[in-house]
């Protein structure tokens, strides 16, 4: 479907302008089709290989391996916690960024985007320098008996650090998309700013917010670099699925494969969910 649309779009323009002969047009079509096949295969082959190679060794028993169970539980627990915190903190922040100007907004915007481009390892070591036992803030926390580094809390902190921008960006766009005139209408009808936010802005932006939250969840679930630097690699405490995959590679490949398959399944579910939501968003836009 993608290829036919692509070809049609391309072909029409060229035919209209009458620049290209039939042979060259066909050659172009074949070339583009090949490119598409290669690109699709480049992604599909490794994923398919995971399934092919795991078919022999990975059984339901592997699923009950304590390493797998611990990693899966920890990953789901920490990623969910991270996303909930990201939503609670990120939603008002994105609304603020979408609707209001304040001094230093540009700087805040750049800071928010920073974790996306920063290598996760660097994020991890930065977190360690801030919250580690000898860290800038960490030494004071340590003096008060609070230790964050190398605990499950550190896993969550690392995940929030890397996944927050994904939510903030999407949430801001969703809020900006809500027509200001709707908020104005609600206010003239007697609704306070808070009421306007909860009864008009938030419901209209919901689909976008959810898809942002899903992307943040995916990022948190796959987080490796910052976690291993800041939280370490202790089974049942800080060893999330990506860390467990890496660790198991050195011993039991089947455990790695099993965890990888679970992550692939979750990734597919995430893509499906986001697609469904964005399609619904698009439809409601068209309706309006």
């Amino acid at each position: 479907m993608v290829s036919s649309q692509f070809e049609r779009g391309f072909g029409w323009g060229l035919i209209k302008e009458g620049r290209i002969s039939g042979f060259r047009r066909r050659a172009l079509k074949v070339g583009l089709a090949l490119l598409l096949v290669f690109a699709a295969a480049f992604i599909a082959l490794p994923v398919a290989s995971l399934f092919i190679k795991s078919a022999s060794g990975v059984t339901l028993e592997t699923l009950w391996n304590p390493v797998v169970i611990d990693a899966l539980t920890l990953s789901l627990f920490t990623a969910t916690t991270s996303v909930v915190i990201v939503i609670i903190l990120g939603t008002p922040l994105s609304y603020l960024n979408a609707r209001f100007d304040y001094p230093g907004k540009e700087i805040a915007d750049s800071l928010i985007e920073l974790p996306v481009v920063m290598p996760p390892m660097v994020g991890g070591i930065a977190l360690l320098m801030a919250f580690g036992r000898m860290g800038v803030l960490g030494q004071h926390l340590h003096a008060c008996g609070v230790n964050i580094a190398f605990t499950t809390v550190a896993v969550v902190v690392a995940q929030i650090f890397v996944s927050m921008p994904f939510y903030l960006r999407q949430a801001r766009i969703s809020f900006e998309d809500v027509d200001l005139v709707l908020e104005n209408a609600a206010r003239t009808l007697g609704a306070s700013r808070t009421r306007v936010f909860f009864s008009v802005t938030l419901p209209i932006a919901t689909n976008g917010l959810i898809s942002g939250a899903i992307m943040a969840f995916a990022r948190a679930l796959g987080e490796f670099g910052a976690t291993i630097m800041f939280a370490g690699n202790f089974q049942g405490k800080t060893q999330t699925m990506p860390l467990a995959i890496y660790t198991a590679m050195q011993g039991d490949l089947d455990v790695s494969l099993c965890l990888a398959l679970i992550l692939v399944a979750i990734s597919f579910a995430i893509i499906a969910a986001v697609k469904m939501l964005t399609r619904r968003m698009y439809k409601s836009d068209v309706r309006d």
Partner: peptide
């Protein structure tokens, strides 16, 4: 307490 009918009507689509 002013009744305002906006140009685009500004009905709440949801």
């Amino acid at each position: 307490n002013i009744g305002y009918v906006f140009q685009s009507y500004a009905l709440f689509p949801h």
